[in-house]
């Protein structure tokens, strides 16, 4: 069994600052991390590896420094890491990204065996679109399973997989045929810590590095800025909310303060008051 996990290296959003004048992102000193959502995908892949002895390949498109994130994926226990890097990829939107990644996946399939499952995270914390996974699935014709909270069963012989998928008002239990693309829901598992041996071999590992030509991309107009139908025309800072929290007085007994807080709440949001009453009617019957 072969599993590929797409991971993206992103700037740690907690550390992002916006230049007050130019409204550009100040990246100085901002550390990069593996997109946190992708760790749920990677851990799920590693669990399948534990169960089925699968081999896990981590794939990342990004600048050469993104190899750090890939190395980290190896430390957790991935078996192989592929970095897709080329200056032609700069400025890719989701369509161009999914194009480049699907070309890399095709080459990964040719070189290391066709993956039964391609994982992505739910979304990234910089782009936040949740589109790259579905994009890859439709380009490669993989059955698309998004927002998966649990992999119930994987039957390799029958080539089938059963999963639980988070829908709007409940959980769908879906069954489909491999190969699939799974975008893993957040908070569904906890990333493990690799062993000394895994950490050592990760530190030693060669990161396979491919450029556009290596994955068979001939038409560069499908890549990067040129291959991106969306155009970012304006970037600006949100107008700071001037209305900071209305602070309720902290005078008096706990009871007085609690009532003051509720009064303020109901005054501010009468809808909430009605709603709570309506719920309470259910609640106390």
């Amino acid at each position: 069994m072969h599993i590929v996990v797409c991971i993206k290296q992103v700037p740690d959003s907690a550390q992002i600052r916006v230049h007050p004048v130019t409204n550009t992102i100040m990246r100085q000193g901002v550390p990069t991390i593996i997109n946190p959502y992708d760790l749920f995908a990677l851990e799920e892949a590693l669990r399948l590896k534990d169960r089925f002895g699968a081999s896990v390949t981590a794939l990342c498109m990004g600048p050469p420094t993104a190899s750090e994130s890939l190395r980290k994926a190896l430390t957790f226990g991935a078996d192989r890491a592929v970095l897709l890097t080329d200056r032609y990829f700069a400025g890719s939107d989701t369509l161009a990204t999914s194009y480049a990644l699907s070309m890399a996946l095709t080459r990964i399939g040719a070189d290391y065996g066709t993956p039964e499952i391609v994982f992505t995270g739910k979304q990234t914390i910089d782009g936040d679109t949740a589109q790259v996974g579905p994009g890859i699935a439709s380009r490669l014709g993989l059955n698309q399973l998004t927002y998966i909270s649990r992999i119930v069963e994987t039957d390799l012989d029958a080539g089938r997989i059963t999963v639980e998928r988070r829908a709007e008002t409940g959980t769908q239990v879906l069954e489909t045929r491999l190969p699939v693309l799974v975008t893993m829901l957040e908070a569904t598992n906890t990333m493990r810590r690799g062993t000394v041996e895994q950490a050592l071999s990760a530190a030693r590992a060669e990161i396979v590095t491919w450029n556009a030509a290596d994955v068979g991309i001939e038409d560069l107009t499908k890549c990067g800025l040129r291959g991106s139908p969306t155009i970012v025309k304006k970037v600006f800072a949100p107008t700071a909310r001037t209305d900071k929290a209305e602070i309720v007085s902290n005078e008096g007994s706990a009871e007085t303060r609690a009532n003051a807080l509720i009064d303020a709440l109901f005054a501010r949001a009468p809808g909430v008051e009605d709603d709570l009453y309506a719920r309470a009617v259910h609640h106390y019957v």
């Binding site: 949740a130 589109q131 996974g133 579905p134 994009g135 699935a137 927002y147 969306t230």
Partner: peptide, 20 residues
């Protein structure tokens, strides 16, 4: 979850841009 699942595939199939 439904809209983002669907929009991603439709946009890719149509090869058009999508602002999420």
């Amino acid at each position: 979850n439904l809209g983002r699942d669907l929009a991603g595939s439709v946009a890719t199939t149509l090869k058009t841009g999508l602002t999420a």
